[in-house]
Design a protein around this nucleic acid. Structure first.
Length: 286
DNA sequence: AAGATTGTTGCTTA
DNA sequence: TTAAGCAACAATCT
């Protein structure tokens, strides 16, 4: 599940690889993975350059010049964006197998650059998408996202404001992209465990102290997860096809029901909160 | 072999 | 008008 740290890792990687290279050829293997009509999609890309790569929440934004359009890429649950610098192999693979051949059976779109290097969009479950938008539509999409962790907008007082207005479970608030951008199921569980707050607590019932713990641990965990290049639980890989390293720091998402808590003598339980599988320790999270 | 998995949208209900 | 909850989507794994 690529969340903010995983998408940010890919963004930083790709920035070093694909900027200012002319786009030569587009291969749409799965039509459904592209939200535009094929001819419009191809025309917007071909002959242009990627001049910048930005991100909002889990959404990647590749800026196109001179066309002044934007390529949005959302990986949803199983998307991968792998850059192959020469014919043959990449460093790691889908899951753990090394030296993965590309394209493979999950490759949905291929973008070829002028020097014959290629960017592969793989997506096992076909939920992810690519879409060309103009600046007006981009701004409209961006405006719907909530505050972005690790930016100036993400302050304790803004977070308090958001949380105290909601009566949904706190986990639902953390997952709501319109309120806070970029947190998914893994980091929501990790942040709430670190903050010692039960995921099913009603948001507007949290104390200032608890919100502060969510704020501080949220910052800390997301920063560290980026530093360690994300979490590979199922099939996330970076732009080189390599796995992340944050799995070693997971304290709760990686636990099974009944396993001992990382922090106290309690046992982990698994329930559904906000429609998602949710692990927590009923003894030290309250 | 049914149920779980997960991010987002869109529908329904309150 | 807004929020909350949930089915749907695809494909695979248990």
């Amino acid at each position: 599940m690529p969340e903010l740290p995983e998408v940010e890792t890919i963004r930083q990687d790709l920035k070093k690889k694909i900027l200012n290279q002319k786009i030569n050829k587009i291969d749409i293997i799965n039509k459904k993975s592209v939200r535009n009509a094929a001819d419009i999609f191809v025309r917007a890309l071909k002959g242009n350059y990627f001049s910048e790569i930005s991100r909002v929440g889990k959404l990647l934004i590749l800026h196109l010049h001179p066309g002044n359009k934007f390529l949005l890429i959302h990986l949803k649950m199983t998307g991968q964006l792998i850059y192959k610098s020469k014919q043959g192999m990449v460093a790691g693979g889908h899951g753990s197998e090394p030296d993965m051949e590309l394209p493979n059976k999950h490759t949905r779109v291929v973008i070829e650059l002028a020097d014959k290097t290629k960017l592969f969009f793989n997506d096992l479950r076909k939920f992810g998408y690519l879409e060309i938008v103009d600046r007006a539509r981009l701004e409209k999409i961006k405006s719907k996202f909530g505050i972005e962790p690790l930016t100036k907008d993400y302050t304790l007082s803004r977070l308090k404001e958001i949380i105290k207005k909601r009566k949904a479970p706190i986990k639902a608030v953390l997952l709501n992209q319109n309120l806070i951008a970029g947190i998914g199921n893994i980091y929501a569980d990790e942040i709430l465990f670190a903050a010692r707050v039960r995921p099913d607590r009603t948001a507007n019932g949290l104390t200032d102290k608890e919100i502060k713990r969510i704020y501080e641990n949220g910052n800390k965990i997301i920063k560290k997860a980026i530093e360690y290049r994300g979490t590979t639980f199922n099939n996330y890989v970076d732009a080189d096809g390599k796995r992340g390293n944050f799995m070693n720091f997971l304290r709760i998402y990686s636990k099974k029901e009944g396993e001992k808590c990382f922090r106290c003598p309690g046992n982990i339980i698994k329930v559904k909160v906000a429609g998602r599988g949710t692990r927590f320790c009923p003894k030290c999270q309250s």
